[in-house]
Amino acid sequence: MDTQVLYNIVHQEAFGFNIAMYFYLTGLSAGSFILSTLAYGFGMNQYKAIGRVGVVLATLLLVIAPFFLLIHIGMPHRAWHLFVYLNMSSPITWGSFLLILYPINCIVYGYFMFKEKIKLTRIFGFIGIPLAISVHGYTGFILAFGKARALWNTALMPILFLASAIVSGIALMILVVTVKDRFFSKTKKIDLELIMNLGKLLAWMIVFDLFLVGSDLLVLLISHSDAQAAADLILGGKFSTLFLIIENLLGKIVPFILLVIPRFRRLTTVVIASILVVVGIFIMRYVVVVAGEYIPLL
C-alpha cells in the first residue's frame, strides 16, 4: 500500500544537546564518586591515590551539570518552583533534591578526606554511594517515564545509564590521574600499577555495558512496531554511524581489545582507550536522547 504524508506539522525538540550533556556530566560525577569510595569506603588500598581526585572531580562536575538544565528550561528564574510545588510522581522532582543533597555530601566527604579523618570519610562515603547511584539513576527514570518514546521507555534505562556512568567515570579517572601525575606531581612519576588496575576494571565494566546495550537492542527488535522503528533508526538509519561505529565500535569494542590483550598493555594504549571511551559515552548519551525523540509520534 502506498501511503504518503502530504501535510503534517514539525514538532519542536523536547530534549536535546543540553540534556544529553547534563546526563553525561552527572554520569561522570557519579562514576568518579564511586571510584573514590573504593579506597575510602571499602578499604581497597591500591586505589587510595584516586580517592581525592575522585571526590574533587565528582563535586566539580556536579556543580557544572545543573547549569545545562538552567540553560535548557525556558524559565530559569522559576527554578525555585521545583522545591516548592512538589509532584512525587515526577523523576525531575526527585532529582531536584538529589542535585542539592549529593554535592553537599560530596563536599563534606571530601573535607574529611583531606583532613585525614578516615572514620568520618568512610561514613560519608557510604552515605554518598546511594546518593551517587540515585543522582544518576533518576536521569534514567526521566527517560524511562517518557512512555511515548520506544527507545526511552524501558526498565533497563536506569541501569544502562549507571553502567555507562561507571565506564565513563573510570576512563576519565585514568586520564586525570595520568595528567596529574605527569605534570602536577612532585616526582613526575606515573603510578603504572594503578593505571593498569583501573584499565582492567574499565575493560570488565565495558563488557557489562555492552551486555546491557545488547539486551536492550534485542528486545527492541522483537517488540512492538514503534520499538522496531527505533531499533531501525539506530541500526540502519540516521543515527547508525554514531551508534554503531562511534559509540559501540570505537567507544567500547576497540578500547576493550586494547585493554585486555597483554601485548597492548602500556600506558599509551590505556590512555588512548580511555579517550575513546570518554568520547563514546558522550555519543551514547546524545544518541539516546536525540534519537529517542527523532521519530515523529503522529
Binding site: 519542536q12 523536547a14 530534549f15 538544565l69 535548557h72 528550561i73 525556558g74 524559565m75 522559576r78 527554578a79 518552583h81 521545583l82 515526577s90 525531575i92 526521566i142 517515564f145 517518557g146 512512555k147 511515548a148 518514546r149 525523540e293 509520534l297
Partner: peptide, 12 residues
C-alpha cells in the same frame, strides 16, 4: 510552568 519540556517529551 518552568518550561522544562518534560511534558512535551512524554506526550504520546
Amino acid at each position: 510552568c518552568i518550561g522544562c519540556r518534560y511534558c512535551m517529551a512524554s506526550c504520546p
